[in-house]
Nucleic acid binder design. Structure first.
Length: 487
RNA sequence: GGGUUGGUAGCUCAAUGGUAGAGCAGCGGCCUUUUAAGCCGUUGGCUGUGGGUUCGAGUCCCACCCGACCCA
């Protein structure tokens, strides 16, 4: 991709000019004494140290120059004077381009306008920029460029960078929380011969040496349960799942999921786990349990109150609330008619439970803004959970909805290998799923009763940070590749 | 897959079918405490791609590419 313009040509010429003077503007190493933020905190008039970063502003004033340096921590103003640097160095400095990385050594002082500034004694060019950066004032707003060239987005938009810094903190806090609870972190295969643990279209890949196809995993579940069989009583994994389905503001083909399994727990154990985890993370990272989402103008569009205890409500009760108290007593045809009348999208080949679930997903879930544990789903929806003893048409599960989205499903895990085989076989009939015999053999060796949970990390972060699109919490959201010049 | 909508200078945006412009930055001057520095001057365009209509297309029509939002 040899695209050229005058700005790039000029920078290449500046690079050549530096080399002609014997200056190599791509350093192997430059170790600054301080970060911008660190230096600011340790301010002391006349203190000498070095900084390194990208030059993001350049204000020449004849025989002196003010420039800004930015590193990962902050920004720092640097002041250069011709008679302090010497004529030759001063000329080189004047020829640098915005965006160049430089190292600067100097002493601290405060300007007339009371800005902490480094007075330059010497400088080194450590990484020249051959392309111009987005304008400092207008920033970068073209959404496609922001996603395709996220590095420019990070340079131009500090609030974007803050989102990803916070994402990192959220995940670290979650990890800490799990470790405190005695869970150990594991890694299981992302390439699986049989993609199980969820109903979703997988991506296919091929292993040449083994001469067979593999699928990218759609869930972590079945391997983590094998570990329960193996005596690892509390395990979790934070990992990528891949689903070969549509892309939307809520769906990316690869997304991050935390799954955790606790032997001798059940779905209620997982409720406590989730509520404690999320409230603690919110307090630590956002600093409040009352999360406000705002529109572009800054008006609050939604307020989510994470203060516990969170609402618990049975799936059937929510359905009756929306679809009529007699919803489960009328005929299947009547249910179908009501669902359509209410505005749910019901396919002609939907089974009865799918009609009801269409009502849930389309008309109920989006209204669950405040944290809600929806419990006791119909057994047809999830084959991997145990039946509810006093209502065997349902299972001991919850789906935790917040912000109108499902954030975390959890089950009392099925540990009866015979019942598990039956449930999977019934489901395998309608989906294209193959039976994971190896998993069933593991169960036959005995699995402790357990609670398990899956947490959609990206959606959780959207909720906590007030982001409306999953693309804004993923550094590199999936986009269609731009057609390259070569075929 | 369908609907709506967008793609113009490095960035942010203008331009009744009639010479493609501005601000920023870039380039050249002046300026030793500025900070969206200032003042003077100035370069920069295959208007996403390919066709068509027209005396004339950024603008109208068709197809395609890449986004965004909504729907399936």
């Amino acid at each position: 991709m040899e695209e050229e313009n005058s700005l790039i040509e000029q920078r290449r010429a500046n690079l050549a000019a530096l080399r002609e003077k014997g200056i190599e503007p791509f350093a192997n190493k430059f170790t600054p004494d301080e970060t911008c933020a660190g230096a600011r905190v340790k301010y002391e008039e006349g203190r000498e140290f070095s900084l390194a970063g990208r030059m993001t502003a350049f204000r020449t004033m004849g025989k002196s120059i003010f420039l800004d340096i930015r590193d990962g921590s902050d920004r720092m103003q640097v002041y250069a004077q011709k008679n302090a640097l010497g004529d030759e160095a001063f000329e080189v400095l004047k020829k640098l381009d915005l965006g160049d990385f430089i190292g600067v050594k100097g002493t601290m002082f405060t300007t007339r306008t009371e800005e902490i500034t480094l007075k330059m004694a010497e400088f080194t060019v450590v990484g020249k920029a051959l392309r111009p950066l987005p304008a400092k004032w207008h920033g970068l707003s073209n959404i496609e460029t922001r996603y395709r060239q996220r590095y420019l987005d990070l340079i131009a938009n500090d609030d974007v960078k803050q989102v990803f810094y916070k994402r990192s903190t959220i995940i670290r806090e979650i990890r800490d929380f799990m470790h405190e609870r005695g869970f150990i972190e594991v890694e299981t295969p992302t390439m699986q011969a049989i993609p199980g643990g969820a109903a979703a279209q997988p991506f296919v890949t091929r292993h040449n040496a083994l001469g067979c196809e593999f699928y990218l995993r759609i869930a972590l579940e079945l391997y983590l349960k094998r570990l329960l069989v193996g005596g690892m009583d509390r395990v979790f994994e934070i990992g990528r799942n891949y689903r070969n389905e549509g892309i939307s503001p809520r769906h990316n083909p690869e997304f991050t999921m935390l799954e955790a399994y606790q032997a001798f727990g059940d779905y209620e154990t997982m409720m406590e786990l989730l509520e404690s985890m999320i409230t603690r993370v919110a307090e630590k990272v956002v600093g409040t349990l009352v999360i406000e989402h705002r529109d572009a103008e800054g008006n609050v569009t939604r307020t989510i109150d994470l203060t516990g205890p969170w609402r618990r409500v049975k799936y059937k009760d929510l359905i009756r609330e929306k679809g009529g108290a007699d919803w489960f007593d009328v005929t299947q045809d009547e249910r179908r008619k009501r669902a359509i009348d209410l505005g749910a999208e019901i396919g002609p080949d939907y089974m009865d439970y799918e009609v009801t679930n269409g009502l849930f997903e389309k008309l109920i879930e989006p209204t669950l803004i405040q944290p809600t544990f929806v419990t006791h789903l119909p057994k047809e929806l999830i084959p991997l959970a145990k039946l509810t003893p006093d209502d065997p048409t349902t299972i001991e599960v919850f789906e935790c909805c917040i912000n109108g989205q499902e954030i975390a499903p959890a089950y009392t895990e099925q540990n009866d290998p015979v019942a598990q085989r039956e449930a999977l076989q019934n489901q395998a009939g309608e989906e294209q799923q193959k039976l994971d015999e190896d998993f069933l053999v593991a169960l036959e060796h005995g699995m402790p009763p357990a609670g398990g949970i899956g947490i959609g990390i990206d959606r959780l972060i959207m909720m906590l940070l007030g982001q409306e699109s999953i693309r804004d919490v993923l550094l590199f959201p999936q986009l269609k590749p731009k057609t390259t010049a070569a075929e």
